[in-house]
Nucleic acid binder design. Structure first.
Lengths: 376, 376
DNA sequence: AGAGTTGGTTAGTAAACTTTACTAACTGAC
DNA sequence: GTCAGTTAGTAAAGTTTACTAACCAACTCT
């Protein structure tokens, strides 16, 4: 019964001392980033490392410009006053790019806490080819990079479509792209570290890192299409073929539905995409409640098995405020609870993403932090 | 917008040199376990470590009895002949325990490849209390431990219900248990490492480690109830409250259904549990196709969003052969493909678990390997 | 002023990997 | 049959990393 097929290793390759060091440096950055400024002694207690080691790690981080000393703590208590250390929050910027929309692509310079400092955008001609769009993206990113007033940690991009592990956009119908090596192109153009991921994945990163929820959440992004990003046990789910989160064309319910562009009937997108919802609202006149409730119920029907199977504690909706935040949200919440075991539903939180307009920009920025610093 | 709530760290605590060492020792065991016997030089090439380091690691493993030298390789080529090293496959045993069934609990002694060597079992009185069952389990495990003819690596237990991270059975209605510290009790009784997990989780471990599929799969276990185990990116999903996989009471479909013991209508279990299926088959006379197809379709309706959202490549069914392997399997396969995007369905494999009767025993054994050796 | 407490550094040590250089043992060609 | 070339494995020395032990610095409290 033994199967000796040459297969996966739990982690791809060995752990060298230097890898441990890198991990510990990340841990310090992470502790500071989420815990705020603290002393070396505080870090030592929190990370279970000795003061000596922490001092050494902090010195390395300061030398690289990733951490800074902030002077003495003014807490009064016996003993030598502590020297506060923090992540270099003000001296580093990040560029975030949101390619979600179809008419206009947007970029911004953000600080490390995800605050937008400068913006720029670019309209796309309605009938542009993939190459045209690509040229626009390059110009936009170059412009954004120029707006930064501090050294840049990197560039993060949230794009619709399926993104490979090396930042290649494998397929993005809305942008007319197939196998575009976006990361490599932007890295060459800017000379900076560049991270590319799906827009819903970017959004869930923002929600996870900048929000204060748990380690198991799903974010559903409602726009032209419907997609989701998943964090399970504090890790992003990418899927075997990097297409995790592609739930827009899952059939939902057992009672038919409208024809979808994919050829099937009753896809989640036919119930829930922003254009269809807006049309449904327009058609229904004054009854805004009905279509929104129906959409929310459909979403919950699809989400219930996912939430139950993964034991998620948070469901977050991101989309046009006027569509998502109201009847739709309430319908999702109620339907979800009705369709799963009460005991599991009791720890469930269903909510709307804060600042949904910028969530992809901010998530893209977080992606850079995650990659460069190992901060989550 | 910064949220500085004191929160999770990516990995709980720092990485010491000794942790790296432990990881590398696991990596060697893993490479040997899945790749079969090979030389130190082969290991060095595969793990990207130097020959020196590998020799050192192998020496440590041999000293602990976890690896053995098998003599010279008989491959003819220039150079000094290689000394083959392998995991100690024959000199170590594992005890696996399956508490799934309600009338009889089973245990076995297995070798490291998951082959069952000796069995024992124990009937449960129909109306036994939780304490009675616990006494039976203790006696059964003691008996199984006595049957081993080689040193035991540990004891693995697959149990229905929700199991906490420390091996406490938080709740298992079928066995009459609430907050039973099963791991601690068995560890004390046997003096061995003991691992406890949910039965469906054990089964998916067996399928993942002993099968030769990918890193993203779901296993649905159909018995008295319905539950599932999930491997995502090579890691088991436990869920925020350790209740991942509890899909039995998710409502499926939009057209009602039968009343479930939980009080809801249309739960997955009402369509799919073994007793209900058997009853449906008995009621339907000669038409065995109908009820089985219906059940399979229901399961697929619930699974489609999960498979799509996670980008899974394998769906495995485990349950009574006569129920699962046939119309039901075909219905799941067909319905699943119909309800998701063709591109994603193309890499999907839907199958029945090999050797479903022993899958929990074998998964429990694998669990011990996973824990003790870091082998997956 | 002195005792106690807390923050941080210096000096030396142990663990774990690397590089470099070696021995051992084989194949294959002349 | 010998010698060049190749592969496996070991030995010795060096580097990185974090640890322990001991210390100094700077504050509060009595």
């Amino acid at each position: 019964m033994a199967s000796r097929s040459p297969r996966r290793l739990q982690h791809d390759s060995a752990v060298l001392p230097a890898d441990g060091r890198r991990q510990n440096l990340s841990l310090v950055l992470q502790a500071l980033y989420t815990g705020g400024a603290m002393s070396r002694a505080d870090l030592a207690r929190r990370l279970q490392l000795t003061k000596v080691t922490v001092s050494d790690l902090v010195a390395a981080l300061i030398e690289r410009g990733q951490a800074v000393e902030l002077g003495q703590s003014d807490v009064v208590r016996p003993g030598k006053p502590a020297t506060l250390v923090d992540v270099n929050r003000t001296g580093l910027h990040v560029v975030g790019v949101d390619l979600t929309a179809h008419e206009v692509i947007r970029a911004a310079v953000l600080d490390l806490d995800g605050n937008v400092l400068h913006r720029c955008e670019r309209a796309l001609g309605g009938s542009s080819t993939g190459d045209d769009v690509l040229a626009d993206v390059l110009a936009l990113v170059t412009e954004a990079v120029g707006l930064a007033t501090e050294p840049l940690l990197g560039v993060g991009v949230g794009t619709p479509g399926v993104v490979g592990p090396d930042g290649d956009v494998l397929t993005a119908p809305n942008l007319g792209w197939t196998d575009v090596p976006l990361r490599a192109l932007l890295a060459e153009a800017t000379g900076l570290p560049v991270l590319v991921c799906n827009d819903a994945d970017a959004a869930v990163h923002a929600e996870y890192t900048l929000g204060d929820g748990g380690d198991d959440l799903i974010l559903v992004k409602i726009g032209l299409g419907v997609g989701c990003g998943l964090i399970v046990a504090g890790r992003r789910v990418r899927g075997a073929h990097f297409a995790a989160g592609e739930i827009g064309h899952v059939t939902v319910g057992t009672d038919g539905g409208e024809l979808c562009s994919c050829g099937n009937v009753g896809c989640l997108e036919t119930w829930l995409s922003a254009p269809r919802l807006q049309k449904a609202l327009a058609d229904s006149g004054t009854d805004t409640e009905g279509p929104l409730r129906a959409a929310g119920e459909r979403l919950a029907i699809a989400l219930a098995p996912v939430v139950a199977a993964l034991g998620l504690t948070e469901v977050v909706l991101a989309g046009p405020h006027e569509l998502v935040d109201g009847s739709l949200l309430r319908a999702v919440d109620e339907t979800l609870r009705r369709r799963m075991l009460a005991r599991n539903a009791s720890t469930l939180e269903v909510r709307v993403a804060a600042d949904a307009d910028d969530i992809v920009l901010r998530g893209a920025a977080v992606l850079v932090l995650w990659d460069q610093w190992g901060v989550a």
